[in-house]
Computed example of a mutant assay.
Amino acid sequence: MDVKKAVIPAAGLGTRFLPATKSMPKEMLPIIDKPVIHYVVEEAIASGIDDIIFVTGRSKRAIEDYFDESPELQMHLKEHHKDSLLKMVEDISSMVDIHYIRQKEPRGLGDAIMTAKKHISGDPFAVLLGDDIIVNDVPCTKQLIEVFQKYRCSTIAVEEVPREKVSSYGIISGKPIDDSLCILEDIIEKPSVEEAPSNIGAIGRYVFTPEIFDCINKTSTGVGGEIQLTDGIRLLNEQQKVYAYRFAGQRYDTGDKLGYVKAIVDFALKNEEMAPSIREHIKNVLGSGF
């Protein structure tokens, strides 16, 4: 029952970042010098995952290229004795076993996960959305895996969200076990503020038992005319316990413009080389009354 496989859905169109995402997957947008998806893969590896299935679309070839070998670039770096850069590039292509499945059309998160069913082969697995970066000493996915190993039930990561943003999340109600864990009672996809049972929203990290596939398969199209993962979780919760866990860590929603900019600023401030200049620039901006 060890969780060694992960599905990373990355087939969305990225319309919030048009026109940049017309030719570049949103998951490849850089945070300083590394794309968002690199941080997601690093989290999976640090959580004990050794087999990753990317669910991509027609416009996502850049993700495959990024994690593939780059013979011409590697040869150039080698010839110019840029050993540290060479090692960095080589490490990217050997991080973990990666497989790719194409979602033929964007029909929702639930449909994207369904495409990975054959590869999962009846094992428990993690799901990491490709536009959420979560920073903590203990990776968010590892935190979920630890809950799963204790209770042997599907576990979803949740956090408190602003009331005005509940319509952007799957919102839960639950029976508390302790300050960070509850047994799921219900989950509603993108409710209005009036309909929301709480302001606790599911974010882009999950650990599932394989029964989730049958539940997704039984759901019909939901909000937005898509196959919603939330509806599958709701059905799974009728058959077996599902836990909601308030993870520890700082989450950056890089699929949102403001969240993306916050990630860049915070990561720059943590960079030893850049931090002094960035702090000075921020002081100058604030001092100018901008």
Rank of each mutant, 00 (worst) to 15 (best):
residue 35 P to W: 10
residue 247 F to Y: 15
residue 193 V to K: 06
residue 197 P to C: 04
residue 34 K to N: 10
residue 122 G to H: 14
residue 139 P to F: 11
residue 276 P to W: 14
residue 174 G to H: 06
residue 88 M to V: 11
residue 175 K to G: 00
residue 244 A to Q: 00
residue 98 I to F: 13
residue 137 D to P: 02
residue 220 S to P: 03
residue 270 K to H: 14
residue 43 E to D: 15
residue 28 M to K: 15
residue 163 R to I: 03
residue 221 T to Q: 05
residue 86 L to T: 13
residue 39 Y to H: 15
residue 69 E to K: 08
residue 26 K to W: 00
residue 141 T to F: 02
residue 244 A to S: 13
residue 70 S to P: 00
residue 152 R to K: 10
residue 92 I to K: 12
residue 125 F to M: 02
residue 227 I to Q: 00
residue 102 R to Y: 04
residue 55 V to S: 05
residue 70 S to L: 09
residue 15 T to F: 11
residue 172 I to A: 09
residue 266 D to N: 15
residue 123 D to T: 12
residue 193 V to P: 03
residue 256 D to T: 08
residue 18 L to H: 12
residue 109 L to R: 01
residue 174 G to F: 13
residue 254 T to I: 08
residue 183 I to K: 12
residue 90 E to A: 14
residue 40 V to Y: 03
residue 183 I to A: 04
residue 164 E to V: 06
residue 245 Y to V: 07
residue 108 G to Y: 08
residue 148 F to V: 01
residue 46 A to M: 15
residue 218 K to Y: 00
residue 101 I to C: 10
residue 74 Q to H: 11
residue 212 I to M: 04
residue 79 E to L: 14
residue 192 S to C: 06
residue 54 F to A: 13
residue 255 G to I: 06
residue 146 E to L: 09
residue 225 G to W: 10
residue 56 T to G: 10
residue 114 M to E: 06
residue 239 Q to T: 15
residue 267 F to Q: 05
residue 44 A to N: 06
residue 105 E to K: 15
residue 121 S to F: 05
residue 104 K to W: 15
residue 286 L to F: 00
residue 278 I to G: 02
residue 154 S to C: 04
residue 231 D to V: 15
residue 290 F to W: 11
residue 22 K to D: 10
residue 95 M to K: 14
residue 49 I to Q: 02
residue 71 P to C: 14
residue 255 G to C: 05
residue 108 G to F: 03
residue 160 E to T: 11
residue 193 V to C: 05
residue 156 I to Q: 00
residue 181 L to H: 06
residue 58 R to W: 09
residue 117 K to T: 10
residue 232 G to N: 12
residue 95 M to N: 11
residue 6 A to N: 08
residue 235 L to P: 02
residue 113 I to M: 10
residue 266 D to Q: 03
residue 276 P to K: 11
residue 120 I to R: 13
residue 233 I to P: 09
residue 58 R to H: 08
residue 218 K to Q: 12
residue 49 I to N: 00
residue 284 N to V: 02
residue 280 E to T: 05
residue 50 D to F: 05
residue 166 V to R: 04
residue 7 V to D: 04
residue 245 Y to C: 12
residue 65 D to C: 00
residue 150 K to L: 02
residue 1 M to T: 05
residue 62 A to K: 14
residue 135 V to W: 05
residue 155 T to Y: 07
residue 42 E to M: 14
residue 111 D to N: 10
residue 89 V to M: 03
residue 167 S to W: 14
residue 97 D to N: 15
residue 156 I to W: 01
residue 146 E to T: 07
residue 275 A to M: 12
residue 169 Y to I: 01
residue 113 I to H: 00
residue 15 T to W: 08
residue 45 I to A: 03
residue 68 D to E: 02
residue 213 F to P: 14
residue 266 D to W: 02
residue 113 I to L: 04
residue 121 S to T: 07
residue 49 I to K: 01
residue 114 M to I: 14
residue 205 R to E: 04
residue 147 V to N: 03
residue 184 L to C: 06
residue 197 P to Y: 03
residue 281 H to V: 08
residue 172 I to G: 07
residue 37 I to G: 07
